[in-house]
Amino acid sequence: MQIQVQHNPAETQLNSLGVSKWPTWQKEVSIFDWVFHEEEQAYILEGECVVTPIGGTPVSFGKGDFVIFPAGLKVKWEVKQPLHKHYRLDGNALTQAWKRLKAALKLA
């Protein structure tokens, strides 16, 4: 499982994915643990971050980067400058809720 970072993707690529219509998320400067229950694609509008997979190598990204986080990845986030991103999660609301419920109940 590897985090993929594409620096300054082409505007045509972002448009074809509909990135501008994706929801946004913001986070202040902080350090926290996170689990990606499904694949997440993100386009970084503002900020600078280092995400370190548990037992892996730190990955840095920031404004203008397109990032893909694989499903099942456990990481530690370090938000160095306030983060603002567009994001899209794999699946629909029902499958996303089911994955989170299974994880919370430790069913799989």
Results as ranks from 00 to 15, higher is better:
Gly72Arg: 05
His86Gln: 11
Gly55Cys: 10
Ile44Asp: 01
Trp77Arg: 12
Thr57Tyr: 05
Val79Cys: 04
Trp34Met: 04
Gly72Asn: 02
Ile68Asp: 01
His84Gln: 09
Leu14Gln: 09
Phe36Met: 06
Lys63Asp: 01
Gly56Glu: 09
Lys27Gln: 15
Glu78Thr: 15
Val75Pro: 01
Phe61Lys: 09
Asp33Ile: 03
Lys76Arg: 15
Val35Lys: 15
Gly18Asn: 08
Phe32Gly: 04
Lys21Glu: 06
Phe32Ala: 09
His86Arg: 15
Lys80Met: 13
Glu46Thr: 07
Ser16Glu: 15
Ile54Leu: 13
Trp34Ser: 04
Pro82Trp: 00
Phe66Asp: 01
Gly72Val: 01
Asp65Cys: 11
Glu39Lys: 13
His37Pro: 01
Ser20Leu: 12
Phe36Val: 03
Val75Lys: 14
Val29Leu: 09
Val35Thr: 15
Phe32Gln: 08
Ile44Met: 07
Val67Asp: 01
Gly91Met: 12
His86Leu: 14
Ala42Asp: 04
Gly62Leu: 04
Ser16Pro: 00
Glu78Tyr: 12
Lys80Asp: 07
Val59Phe: 03
Leu83Met: 14
Gln81Val: 06
Ala71Leu: 02
Glu46Gly: 03
His84Ser: 04
His37Val: 01
Phe36Gly: 02
Val67Asn: 00
Trp22Ser: 06
Leu83His: 10
Ala42Gln: 05
Asp65Glu: 09
Val50Met: 10
Ser60Pro: 03
Leu45Ile: 13
Val29Thr: 13
Val19Pro: 00
Pro70His: 14
Pro58Asp: 06
Ala42Phe: 05
Leu83Phe: 07
Phe69Gln: 15
Cys49Asp: 05
Glu48His: 13
Thr57Gly: 02
Gln41Glu: 10
Lys63Leu: 11
Thr12Glu: 14
Asp33Thr: 11
Trp77Gly: 08
Phe61Asn: 07
Ile68Phe: 02
Tyr43Ser: 01
Val79Tyr: 02
Ser60Glu: 09
Gly18Trp: 05
Ile68Gly: 02
Val67Phe: 00
Pro82Asp: 02
Phe69Leu: 15
Val35Phe: 10
Gly64Tyr: 12
Ser30Ala: 12
Asn15Ser: 15
Gln41Val: 08
Thr12Val: 07
Cys49Ile: 05
Leu45Lys: 11
Ser30Lys: 08
Phe61Tyr: 13
His84Phe: 05
Trp77Thr: 09
Phe61His: 09
Ile68His: 02
Cys49Leu: 12
Val59Thr: 10
Trp22Asp: 02
Ser60His: 06
Leu73Ala: 10
Asp33Ala: 14
Phe69Lys: 15
Val67Trp: 00
Glu40Pro: 00
Glu48Cys: 10
Leu83Glu: 10
Thr12Asp: 12
Gly72Ser: 02
Thr24Glu: 10
Val75Asn: 13
Gly55Lys: 13
Ala71Met: 04
Gln26Trp: 02
Val59Gly: 07
Lys85Ser: 09
Phe69Asn: 14
Trp34Phe: 01
Ser60Lys: 12
Gly56Cys: 09
Phe66Gln: 02
Glu40Gly: 01
Trp34Thr: 03
Val35Glu: 13
Trp34Arg: 06
Gly56Arg: 11
Lys74Ala: 00
His37Ser: 06
